[in-house]
Design a protein around this nucleic acid. Structure first.
Length: 690
DNA sequence: AGGCCTCGAGTTCC
DNA sequence: CTCGAGGCCT
C-alpha cells in the first residue's frame, strides 16, 4: 500500500494537484483502498493495515468530498455514517416473504427430517445437505440493484418489516456495492445481523462507564443498535453480518446448489460464515451438529443451533413448503441457555456457618438441557438489587458451567399482587434469632451447631468431605438421617458408630453399612492440614489449614499458640487469628478435638520433609482445563511436594499456568498478562529438571 | 487509605 | 463460578 501518497495528501490541501480529474482519480483510489481494507477486516476477518492508517485514508476522503461535493457518490464509504434521526421506521413489504424454519431438538427429530426429505424426493437413497450455523441475531433482507445497496429491511412478521437502510449502511461488514462487474438487476440477500462477543463486551464496558444501561446479551445489543432511530448511534456499534439466503433475483440465474450460492455471495464481497459444510445423510448432519456443539464456546459469536438445508435448489423447490415453513430445511437447536419462568416462592437455606441464603423456588423450566427448580439469590442485598419478588416472571440462565442464576425479572409481566422477600427474624430450622451485622452482607442463624441441626449437618458434611477427612459413602442422605434421628451430634460420634446402628437407617443394607464403617476407619490416618481444615473453623479453609500445619508442625503447638503467634503465620491477620483462637478456647471444641484424637485419628507430625529439595519454592501455579493423564489434584500434589503453591486465579504474580483441554478464561488471562503457559509435559519436565 | 490478590463459602443437578 | 471479605502491598 502506498502510505507515502496518503500521508502527503492528508496534510489538508498540501498536495499540489490541479484539475478536477486528478481529484477524481484520487477519490476513486481512496474509495477502493478503504473498501479493500474494510472488506479484509470485517468480511475476511484478516486486517491488512493498522487502524490508524485506515482512519487516515478515511479522513482524507471525507475532506476531499467536502471540498468537491460533485465527487461524492452514493456508494462511497463515507456515506455509511448516517444523517439525521428518523421520526420512525417506514414499513416495507417483502416481495418474497421471510419465513421461519421448523425446529428440531434431538437426534430423532433430525432422523425424521431426513426421512421426510428422502420420501419427498421420490425415495432417494441419500440426500445431500448444506449445513451452516444458526446465528443468534436478527434476520435481515438487503436489496441490491445493479450491484448497489438500495434498501435494507428487518424480518418483522415475515411479510412486512421495517426499513433500516440508514442504519445498515453504517455496518462495515455489508458492502454498499457488490464486488465484480457482472451484477444482477435485483438481488435480495437474506442474512443475519449480529454482534460478536468481544464487541458486545466492549460496548457494555462503554455503557457502564457512561452510566448507561448494559445490554443483557449480544442479540439484544444488536437488535437495540439496529433499531436506533439515529444512525449515528448505530455507527458507533460494531455490527457484523453473515449472508445465508436469497429472496428476489432478477437478471441472473440461480446457482445449482445452496453451497454454490454462498460461494457466489463470497465472490460478491458479502460475508459468508466459514463454519459450513456439505454433508450426506442424517449421520452427516449429526456429525456437523456435534462438531459445532463442541466448538460453540470458542466461536466469536453466539449461536443457538445449526441449520440444515437440502443442497440442490431444484430439490428444494420440489419439496416446497408446509404452511409457513420450508420442508427442505430445519434448524437443529441447542437446548436454550436462558429461559423464562415464574418465582413461586422465595425460601431460605441455612449453611454450615449459619449463613441464611434466600433461594428462589421456580416453576420447573428447562435451561441448557436440565430442569431447574431452585436458584440461589445469594443474599438479601442481591434480592433487593435485582428487585425480584414472589410472583415475578424471571429470566433464568445457566451461568458459567452449571449453576443456575436469576438474571432479572420481566417488568412487563409483573402481576399486581407480587410480594417482596422478607428475611425471617428466626431461623426456620431451630428458631434461634437471625442476626446480621451492620457491615456484612450475610445474615446468620445465631444458634450455632449446638442448637441448629442445619448447622450440625453442614459441619458434618464438611468434616467428611473429600478435601477434609475424605470419608466416602457418607453423603447428604445419610448425614441427614443421622442428625435427624439424633444418632450423632458431633464429628467425634462418627467414630463410635457401629454396624448395627448404621444398619437400622433407611436405605442402608449390610453391604453399604460395612463400606461406611471401613471408610470411617480408613479416615483415621490423615494429615494435620486435613484435620485442621475438617474442624471447620471460620475463615480457615484449605489454604489456611495448610499454612497452619506447615507453620506449627504439630497440633499441640497450634493449640497453645497465642493470638500474637498466630499472626506470624503467612496470610493470617487479626480477623482470622481471633477466629482461630476463639474456636480453640471454646470448651466444646476442646472436648471435640480430644475425642477425635482419642478415637485414633493420627498423622505423621513434623513430617514436613525438611531434607527434600524444594525447587519450586516461591513459585505460584494455576491449573486450568483437563490434563491428558494427571487429575487436577495429582498435578497440584506434585507441585506442592516440590515446594510450589497452587492458586485459584491468574494474576501477575502467577509464575506459570498449566493448561489442558478445554481451558477457559484463565488461559486467556495468562496470555494477556504474558504468564508462561505449560502443558502437562512441560510441567513434568520442569519438575524433573529442577 | 486504597487497590489488588487470594481465600472462603455457598451453590445445582443428576 | 461468583461474591464478599480479609490480608498485604504501595
Amino acid at each position: 500500500m502506498s502510505s507515502e501518497i496518503s500521508s502527503a495528501a492528508t496534510q489538508d490541501g498540501a498536495v499540489d494537484v490541479s484539475g478536477l480529474e486528478n481529484w477524481q482519480t484520487r477519490a476513486d483510489w481512496l474509495r477502493a483502498e478503504i473498501n479493500r481494507h474494510s472488506h479484509a477486516y470485517y468480511v475476511l476477518d484478516n486486517p491488512t493495515i493498522p487502524d490508524a492508517e485506515y482512519d487516515k485514508l478515511f479522513r482524507e476522503l471525507v475532506a476531499l468530498e467536502q471540498a468537491h461535493p460533485d465527487l461524492l457518490t452514493a456508494d462511497s464509504p463515507t456515506q455509511r455514517v448516517g444523517g439525521k434521526p428518523l421520526p420512525q421506521f417506514e414499513q416495507v413489504r417483502h416481495a418474497v416473504p421471510m419465513l421461519s424454519l421448523n425446529n428440531g431438538f434431538d437426534d430423532e427429530d433430525i432422523d425424521n427430517f431426513d426421512r421426510r426429505v428422502r420420501e419427498g424426493l421420490a425415495d432417494i437413497a441419500e440426500a445431500e445437505y448444506s449445513t451452516e450455523l444458526k446465528f443468534d441475531g436478527l434476520a435481515i433482507s438487503l436489496r441490491y440493484e445493479n450491484g448497489l445497496l438500495t434498501q435494507a429491511a428487518t424480518r418483522g412478521d415475515g411479510v412486512t418489516g421495517e426499513n433500516v437502510t440508514a442504519n445498515i449502511r453504517t455496518v462495515k461488514a455489508i458492502p454498499l456495492r457488490l464486488h465484480g462487474s457482472a451484477h444482477p438487476a435485483v438481488l435480495d440477500v437474506r442474512g443475519e445481523v449480529l454482534m460478536f462477543k468481544a464487541d458486545f463486551a466492549k460496548l457494555n464496558a462503554r455503557q457502564r462507564d457512561a452510566g448507561q444501561k448494559e445490554f443483557a446479551n449480544p442479540r439484544n445489543a444488536a437488535a437495540g443498535s439496529l433499531r436506533q432511530l439515529d444512525p449515528r448511534i448505530t455507527a458507533q456499534r460494531t455490527l457484523r453480518f453473515f449472508a445465508y439466503g436469497i429472496g428476489v433475483l432478477e437478471g441472473a440465474s440461480l446457482p445449482p446448489t445452496h453451497s454454490a450460492l454462498l460461494d457466489w455471495y463470497a465472490e460478491l464481497g458479502l460475508p459468508v460464515c466459514r463454519e459450513r459444510a456439505v454433508v450426506k445423510g442424517a449421520s452427516g448432519l449429526l456429525g456437523f451438529f456435534r462438531d459445532i456443539g463442541q466448538r460453540r464456546k470458542s466461536l466469536p459469536y453466539e449461536i443457538d443451533g445449526v441449520v440444515y438445508k437440502v443442497n440442490r435448489l431444484d430439490q428444494q423447490q420440489a419439496l416446497g413448503f408446509v404452511s409457513r415453513a420450508p420442508r427442505f430445511a430445519i434448524a437443529h437447536k441447542f437446548p436454550a441457555e436462558e429461559a423464562m419462568t415464574v418465582v413461586q416462592d422465595i425460601g431460605v437455606q441455612v449453611g454450615r456457618t449459619g449463613a441464611i441464603t434466600p433461594v428462589a423456588r421456580l416453576a420447573p423450566v428447562s435451561v441448557g438441557g436440565v430442569t431447574v427448580t431452585n436458584a440461589t439469590l445469594h443474599n438479601e442485598d442481591e434480592v433487593r438489587r435485582k428487585d425480584i419478588q414472589i410472583g415475578d416472571t424471571v429470566i433464568v440462565r445457566r451461568a458459567g458451567d452449571v449453576i443456575p442464576e436469576v438474571v432479572s425479572y420481566v417488568p412487563e409481566l409483573r402481576p399486581a399482587d407480587v410480594r417482596p422477600f422478607v428475611m425471617p427474624a428466626l431461623c426456620p430450622i431451630c428458631s434461634s434469632p437471625i442476626v446480621k451485622p451492620e457491615d456484612e452482607a450475610v445474615a446468620r442463624c445465631s444458634g450455632g451447631w449446638v442448637k441448629c441441626p442445619a448447622q450440625r449437618k453442614g459441619g458434618l458434611l464438611h468434616f467428611v468431605s473429600r478435601r477434609a477427612m475424605d470419608i466416602e459413602g457418607l453423603g447428604d442422605q445419610l448425614v441427614d438421617q443421622l442428625v435427624e434421628k439424633q444418632v450423632i451430634t458431633t464429628a467425634a460420634d462418627l467414630y463410635k458408630l457401629g454396624l448395627t446402628a448404621l444398619s437400622e437407617l433407611d436405605r442402608m443394607a449390610a453391604k453399604s453399612a460395612q463400606n461406611v464403617v471401613n471408610a470411617i476407619e480408613k479416615s483415621k490416618s490423615t494429615t494435620l492440614a486435613r484435620f485442621i481444615y475438617a474442624l471447620g473453623i471460620r475463615h480457615v479453609g484449605e489454604a489456611t489449614a495448610k499454612e497452619l500445619a506447615a507453620h506449627f508442625g504439630s497440633l499441640d503447638r497450634l493449640l497453645q499458640a497465642s493470638e500474637a503467634e498466630l499472626l506470624e503465620v503467612a496470610d493470617i491477620g487479626p480477623v482470622v487469628a481471633a477466629s482461630i483462637r476463639s474456636f480453640l478456647d471454646d470448651p466444646l471444641n476442646q472436648e471435640l478435638i480430644a475425642q477425635l484424637r482419642a478415637a485414633g485419628i493420627h498423622w505423621a507430625e513434623n513430617a514436613v520433609g525438611e531434607n527434600k529439595p524444594r525447587p519450586l519454592l516461591g513459585k505460584t501455579f494455576v491449573l486450568t482445563g483437563t490434563l491428558p493423564t494427571l487429575t487436577r489434584d495429582e498435578a497440584a500434589a506434585m507441585i506442592e511436594s516440590a515446594g510450589g503453591k497452587v492458586a485459584g486465579s491468574v494474576s501477575k504474580k502467577t509464575s506459570y499456568v498449566v493448561a489442558g483441554e478445554e481451558a477457559g478464561n484463565k488461559l486467556a488471562k495468562a496470555q494477556d498478562l504474558g504468564v508462561p503457559i505449560l502443558d502437562e509435559d512441560g510441567l513434568k519436565r520442569l519438575l524433573e529438571t529442577q
